[in-house]
Design a protein around this nucleic acid. Sequence first.
DNA 1: CGAAACGATGGTAACGATACAGGACGTCGC
DNA 2: GCGACGTCCTGTATCGTTACCATCGTTTCG
Lengths: 337, 337
Amino acid sequence: MVTIQDVAKAAGVSPMTVSHVINEHPHVKASTREHVLEVIAKLDYRVNVAARNLRTGRTNTIGLAVPEIDRPYYGELAAAIIRHASAFNLHVVIEQTGASRENELDALALSRKLMYDGLILSTVGLGPNDADLLPVDYPVVLLGERIFAGPLDHVAMPNVDGARAATQELIDGGCKRIAIVRDNNASQTGMSSLRFAGYLDALESSGIPFDPELSVHVDEYSLASGFDVGMRLANSGLSFDAVFCITDILAHGLLRAFATAQVAVPGKVRVIGFDNIEQDQYSVPSLSSVDPNHDLMAKTAVELLVSRISGKPRTDQRDYVGSFRVVTRESSSAPAP
Amino acid sequence: MVTIQDVAKAAGVSPMTVSHVINEHPHVKASTREHVLEVIAKLDYRVNVAARNLRTGRTNTIGLAVPEIDRPYYGELAAAIIRHASAFNLHVVIEQTGASRENELDALALSRKLMYDGLILSTVGLGPNDADLLPVDYPVVLLGERIFAGPLDHVAMPNVDGARAATQELIDGGCKRIAIVRDNNASQTGMSSLRFAGYLDALESSGIPFDPELSVHVDEYSLASGFDVGMRLANSGLSFDAVFCITDILAHGLLRAFATAQVAVPGKVRVIGFDNIEQDQYSVPSLSSVDPNHDLMAKTAVELLVSRISGKPRTDQRDYVGSFRVVTRESSSAPAP
DNA sequence: CGAAACGATGGTAACGATACAGGACGTCGC
DNA sequence: GCGACGTCCTGTATCGTTACCATCGTTTCG
C-alpha cells in the first residue's frame, strides 16, 4: 500500500505538505501543489480513510436507521437523505431496524462507537420510557414522532393536521361513514395515534359521530396488511362510504382488496392515504394522499444533524414540523359520469 | 472519551487483556473476563472503530452502489443485501450512482480508499470500454450484466432465459403481436439487450415474425416512462395483443396508462414484466412477472464478496447466474368470463 | 521427575494520517 | 533599517487499537 510518506519521499517534500495538498489547505505554492498531485496520480495514492478518521475523530459518515428500506416511503426518504448528505460530503450507512426497539438502540450504540458522526433515527419501536437511553451528548436527529421529552432535535410530519385535512377531504366529498385503518400500537405518541387524533378532529368539527367499529387495525404497515384489512372491511357487512388509511402502503393493499371484492372506488367508497409515495400517481385508481414533502424533511434533518455535528451546542433543542398539502386523485374524487 | 487504557487501568489488567475480552479471544480466565466486562459497562466504554480499522486494515463495511435506492427493485435488493451482510457483521453504505458512469467509478474509488472492505456494484452506466478502470486487486462483485471480460466476480440474472419464458407465457396465451418495452441503450451487453434477445428467441421458436414497430423505447426505468410509453402505444394505432416490459416498474406505469386509455388488460392486451417486485401482487390488474429470486442473488453476492474479502485468491473468477420462475397473475391470464 | 504443552497475561511497536507549533524567507510600512 | 506580517514548508507527537511475541505459571505425560 502506498502511503503519504511514500508520496512525500517521491515528491521530495514532507508528508505534511502532501497532507496540505490533499486537504486543499492554503499556503502551498501552486507549483508544489501541481507536482505533488502528479506524484499522487503516478503512484496511485489513496488516502487511508481509517487513519484520517482516527486522527481527526470524524468519519464523514452518518447513520440512517429505518425500519425497512424496501418500503417505498423509506426508500424515497433514504434516497433524499443520501442526496442531501452528499452535499456535505457525508456518506450514509443504512441500518434496518425492522421497527424493533432493540435494533433501534443498537443503531444508537454504533453511533456512539464513533462509527458515525451522527445519526438520523426514524423511531418506531422506541417508547417514552426509553428516553433515558438516548444520548444527549451525541448528534442525533429523530425523524418521526416526538416521543420524548428529552432535548433531542426532531423532524416531524404534520401528522395531526395532515390527517385532519385528509379526513376533511372525504367529508367534503359527502362521506359520512369514514373508516380509518391504523396500527394497534397503544402508544399515545406514535404516528398512528396522532393521525387518529386528526381524524377524530375532522369528524368532530363536522358533527359526525365517531363509530369505533369503523376503526380497524393492522399489525404492520405493508401491502399485505392493507390487503387483509381491505378484505375484512369488504366482507364485514359494515356500512361505510370512505376509508382513510394512515399510510399509503396500506391504502394500496386495501385498494387491491376492494378491486378483488368488487367494492368500487371511488364509486362506492372513497379512499385516501398519507405519505404521497410515487406509486400513488400510477395505481388504479390513483390514490389521493397527504404530501408531507419528503425532500424538505430530508433536507431539514440533514442540515439539523450537520449543524449539531459541527458543534452547535445542544442548548436550543429544535423541533421542525413540516408542511403538507392534500393531493386529490381518483380515489377520492367524484367518479366520471 | 474513555479508552481501552482507562478500562485496563480501572480493571487492573493490561490493555491487551481488555482487547482480548472485547474480541472474544480464548485464553482469558472467566473471572477476568467478567471483571473486565463489568468495568467496561461501568465506564460506558466503546471501542473506537476508527482506531481498530486503522490497526486491522478492515472496516467491516461494504459499499453497495445502486442507481437509485427509491426504485422498488433496488430497495428490495438493498434490504436483502443489508440483511445478509449483517450475518457477517458487515455494515452497508449505500451510494446512489443515478446510473451514471462517473458515479459508478467514484464508488469504486471510495472502495479503494479503504473505506469499504469490498463493493457490490450494480452496473448500469459502465460499458465494456471501462474494463481497465476496474480494480483486479480489490473485492468487487458485479451485480447485473457481465459487461466485462475482466476477471471480476459476477452475479447475474437469468436475463435471456427469463425474458424468453416471459414472452413464451404470452405466446402460450395465444398472443401473436407482442410489443416489447426496453431502453434505448445501444450496448450489446446490457440488461436491455439480453432481455430483448430472449424475446426474439421466443418469437422465433414459435415462428412469429419480429416487427420492429413493436419494439418501443424508454429513456429510463421509471413509472413515468412506463406511463408515457403506454400512452404512446395506446394511441399509436398499432395492433398488438401483448406487451412485455423488461422491468416491472415500466409495466406498472404502462398498466396505468392503459387504464387511462381504456385498453383492457388482460381482455384486449396481456402484459408481463420482469423482476417480481412486491407491488406486482397488489396492482390492478396484478402483474405477471419473472421472479429472479432477489434474495438468493443478494445472498450469493454477499457470500462471494465475503469470500474475496477473506482472501480467496482471484484465480477463479466466478459467475453466478440465478434461477427464475414465471409468476402468472391477472395481467397475463384469460380474463374471468 | 523433567520436559513439553498449554493457559493466561502483558510489553512493544506499529497502523497512516493530521494538529500544532515553529522556522525560514520575503515583503511591506514607517 | 527594522519590526511585523504573510507565505510556504517541515518535525514531532500523537489518535486508540491490535499484531506479534515474550513471559510466567501450571498441568500433563512419558
